[in-house]
Every structure is written in structure tokens, then in C-alpha cells.
Design a protein around this nucleic acid. Sequence first.
DNA 1: CTGAAAGCGCTTACAG
DNA 2: CTGAAAGCGCTTACAG
Lengths: 340, 340
Amino acid sequence: MKYKATSFDIAYKAGVSQSTVSRALRNSPLVNEETRKKIQAIAKELNYKVDKNASNLRSQHTGTLALLLFEDPTSDDSLINPFFLSMLGSITRAAAQKGYDLLVSFQQLSDDWHADYEDASKADGLILLGYGDYVDYEEKLHQLDEQGTHFVRYGSVAENQPGISFGCDNFEGGYLATKHLIDSGRRHFAFLGGASDHCPEFWARYQGHCHALKEAGLEIRSECQSDAISTEESGYEAAQALIAQKIKLDAVICASDLIAIGGMRAIQEAGYKVPEDVAFVGFDDIPMASFSNPPLTTIQQNTRLAGEMLVEAIVNLIHNLDVKPSLTPATLVIRKSCGS
Amino acid sequence: MKYKATSFDIAYKAGVSQSTVSRALRNSPLVNEETRKKIQAIAKELNYKVDKNASNLRSQHTGTLALLLFEDPTSDDSLINPFFLSMLGSITRAAAQKGYDLLVSFQQLSDDWHADYEDASKADGLILLGYGDYVDYEEKLHQLDEQGTHFVRYGSVAENQPGISFGCDNFEGGYLATKHLIDSGRRHFAFLGGASDHCPEFWARYQGHCHALKEAGLEIRSECQSDAISTEESGYEAAQALIAQKIKLDAVICASDLIAIGGMRAIQEAGYKVPEDVAFVGFDDIPMASFSNPPLTTIQQNTRLAGEMLVEAIVNLIHNLDVKPSLTPATLVIRKSCGS
DNA sequence: CTGAAAGCGCTTACAG
DNA sequence: CTGAAAGCGCTTACAG
């Protein structure tokens, strides 16, 4: 076992008190310039690092954030939604930039997850991401709220939600996607993705979709909406269901890119061409979207911005500053799958 | 600010000493069954959680692991190698299963990253992943080793490396990929990916590739190896370089899937057909690989197994058990890009 | 099986 | 600007 230097070792070597060492190492203005330099030099020499547990315990904050990813229990154990992953990347970076460490955990919705990161003094606050069933999810959110835990979440943004939420402008995204296809002459639309309060993000996208249809005087037919969760397989099945019903189609709006990729596969296997016969638009702009066949037109979520907003918000919350929920822009990214 | 119960509050309520509370909560066999139950009930009622900083400080271990991802400084800030992401998923899960929390950090190789997670008592050990330049990287590894830090890494596995390394059997992977194409009649090979000691993983894959060529009596021509780092763009450029040289080709082995996807794009843009004119094999089996055009034949790394091995190894290391480096199998996954 | 006490390594009033 | 002292909330010998 290697020996770990403490602030007392440094104090002894520097000929000052341990308090002074502690101050010098945190750049307190109370310490004499030269004394500080001397102390910092010795600390470096001894490869000294402040013990986080001790300093956290004493100062009652941890300097770490916990990122909790909730997965659908139905989803494959090894396959994490690529969109999450990209959020994870941007959140890690944003946290590092603000000087916070990031504890990461993937959780099933069924777990006892409000897992008390903050209560156990592991983290100062939580960032929540997830695609699970929102109805179950919301209850847990209320628990967190009642406990007074600091948390922000990314997902659907609506009135009367517990806590502070950030999210993409899903309604606008659904609208933009649909509007673009209408403008390029498509008339027979379907929507792939669960449209219920179990998944409010998809619901908002669907609402945006419907709004665009209405605006253009097109009929909204409920049989043209086919439930799917955000996997390729589920998108494939949802599209097959539509095909089996022999619904007339020339455009499909999908609640996620994964759904779109699965949907295109089903349509192509059924002998139709994308985009000639049927145009597709996805949602998220995951890396895969540019490599699908054909490359997928999609609504991009700005994960970089979202990560920064989430981290800034939770940090402000921790410092008891005022934080308001807000929406991140949804941007149409045009590739070949929409035919224009 | 919410009030946080301490073990003293529970002791008071239960009419026992604080020591007994501490024991009961950790299921010490020293505590009377009934006393324990009573204490645990009160703890639950008070929503009590053991303060991690206090318990860590006292017991001198943290119950957390740090996962450090190193990126090429050249890589796009927002784009994380999908292969890492999949490792991240499996490591998070494996860590959770062993009861460890996971601190995650993305770092540039240039950062002062040996960032002392263990020295600062933030983590009991480190897991290292990265695709940066190995020559720079190795030096840092030596530093960690000298400091006596507990760490394992995933990447190239060779003799005389500092620390304990795990990795895919890259040589075997390169061999399998090449052998398969030789067996299906291809004769004119190129290899896309940097083949030098700056990237020993790619180097090993290239060696496996060459071994298969030799075995089949095919010539190894150095002009048929084109450097690339693991991005789509880099693969695209590497393939273009080959095309510009008018090298005769009917098979391309790529050091990663991203390289392969970029390489196929270049080849297709130049008017060749994949796999009819040129067969492609990638490496990693990232999720994207099944959705490329055509779907990519590739060498799969078993990220699930790798994650479990890494976590188990670091945990054993922390407990001063013996740990040996080892290789994870490389498996050929056949899709359309290889034409058979 | 239980309790009193020490102590993990810091930070931070308090006093000078 | 500096030091002596208290104390963050636990765990763990030690004594019974």
C-alpha cells in the first residue's frame, strides 16, 4: 500500500499549521503569497491530493453530479439508445467544465432508483434522462420533489410536471417534419410511435404532426398512427402493421430515428421504394441516421446545447438560484429519405 | 434545506447507541435480530441513508470506480466513438452489479488526467479506455503504475506493457476477416487504418491481415495500406488515396467500422460496387454497422464480456488479488458488404 | 450482543 | 495573515 500524504505532512514540512496548508491549497486570499507558493510546491512534490471524502464531509457538498439513465425494461440489455449516449457525452463534458465529477448509472424503471444519490451525499444533484413509461416515471419524480432532492430532467416539457424539465421542442419538430413533406407534395401520412401519455415526448411530436396536417387541410386518420417504442425492431413491426392494413401511404413521420430505420426496412421489404414511393422522416439525428439506406431526413435535437443547459440548471439549483424549464430547438436535417 | 437524519437520530429513536445503529445498518452479525429490524425500520421511516463521505473517510475506501475515456484530440468534440459508448454501457452495468458506483470522465490525452481520482479518494480504481496515440499514452500509464494506482485498461495487449490490459484478439480478428475474403475468392487486398506503434490495436489487426495473406501465398504490398484514424471521414480519405493511386482492388479490410463506412462511400462514389467489385470488412460491430449501405460484415468485439472482465479485474486488483491480462474473442459477423 | 471513545482528513469559525 | 480547536458523520477496535 502506498503512503498517502496528508495536509499535516505538508504543514510539518513547510513549518506552518495545517489550517494554513488547507487555505493555501484552496487559494484562499488570506494566505501570504510566498507561503502559498511554498506550500503548493511541497504538495506537488509529495504528490498530495486533497482527500475528497474528508473535504466533502466537512464542507457538506460533493462537487459531483449524478446522471441517471432510465431504460425501458423491454429494451435489450446491451443496446443503449444512441441518443442517450450522445447526451451522455455532452453532459460529461459540460459537467467537467463546471468542475463537477459525474456519477453515471443506468437503471431500470422498476429499480428502487430514486436511489438516493443525494441523500447518501454522493452527489449534489441529479440529472435524469429516460424513455421509460412516463406514467410510472412521474410518480418517482414526485417522490424526488417531495424529498427536496435537487434534480433536472430531459424529456417532455409540460405544465404541472414535478421538478424542472428541459427538452427538445417536440411539437415543433413533428410539425416541421410533416410540413416539409406536405410542401414537397406528399398527402398520405402515417405516424410511427406511441402516441399516449405514457410517452409524452412522442405524444408532442404526434401533436405537431397533426397540427401540420390540419393546417394543410389534410385528414387525420387514427388508423395511420402505429405504436412503437424507440427500437429498430419496434419500428419494423409498426410499419408492417400498417402495410398489412393496406393503408395508402406516401409519407411516414417517425417518433425516432431507430423507429424510422426499422420502418424503412419493412417498407422496402414490402417492395416499396424510399423515398420514391414513401418518404421517411425520423427524429433525434443519431449518428446512424446519416448511414441508413437511404440516409435519413430527421429532426435534430441539439444534444450539445441540451447537455450544457442541464448541467447549468442543476448547478444553479444546487446554489438555490432560480431555474426555469426551457425548450431546445428542433431542426430539420434533410437527407435522401424524404426525396427532396 | 431539508433535514438529513444521522445515525444519532436513529439511535435516539431506537433507544440504542449509535454504534449499534451503524452495525445494524450494515447487517453485522453482532447485532441482535430484533434490534436490527427495529433499527432498520426506523431508518427507513426517517428516509435515512448512510453518508458516503463519512463512511468512506472512516473506512478508507470509496466503493466507486472511475472510467476514463481518452479521445483523440483530433476527433470532433461532440462525436464519441460509438464503440466506446457501448463499452461504457456494459461497464456501467457490470459495476452496478458489483455494487460500485461509476465516475465517468472524457479526457483529452493532453489533459493532466492521471487526474488523481484514486489519490483524491474519489475512486478505488480506474478503468481506462482510449484510442489516442499510444506512444503518448504509454508514458501516462507508467506514471500510474509508479504511483501504485489501481488500474486496468482496454486496448492493445502485449508484453511489457505497464499495468493490466484487456483487449480483443485483434490479430485473430484481422486474420479472420482476411481469411474469409480469401476463401470467397478475393485476391487484391487493401488495408485501411494506421499501422504503426502509435495505434497498436490497428497494428495487431494489420498483422493478422498480413498473416492471412502470407498463409495464402499472396503478396503484401505496402502501398495497399492506407493510414486512417477511427472516423468515417478519415476512412473516406484513406480510400480516396488508394483510388487515386489506381491500385487494383477487390477487397478492403478496415481497422474499424467507421473507417469501413467512410471507405465504402469513397469506393461507391468512384463508381465501384460493394460487394460486387470490392468487398469490405470492418471491425468492432458498432450498431451502425448493420445499417450501413450495404450492411457491413465486421469483426465483432464482445463489449459485454469485456466490460465484465474489466470490472471484475479492477475489483480484484483493489482487493489485492492476482489478475492476469487476457484477450476477448474476435468474431466474424457476416453481412452483405463482403458478398458472401 | 452492546456502548463509550477514538479517529478518518479535512474546513472553518474564532481568536489573535 | 496565522494557529488552535471544533466538528462533519460515520466505522471500528476496545472493554464489558
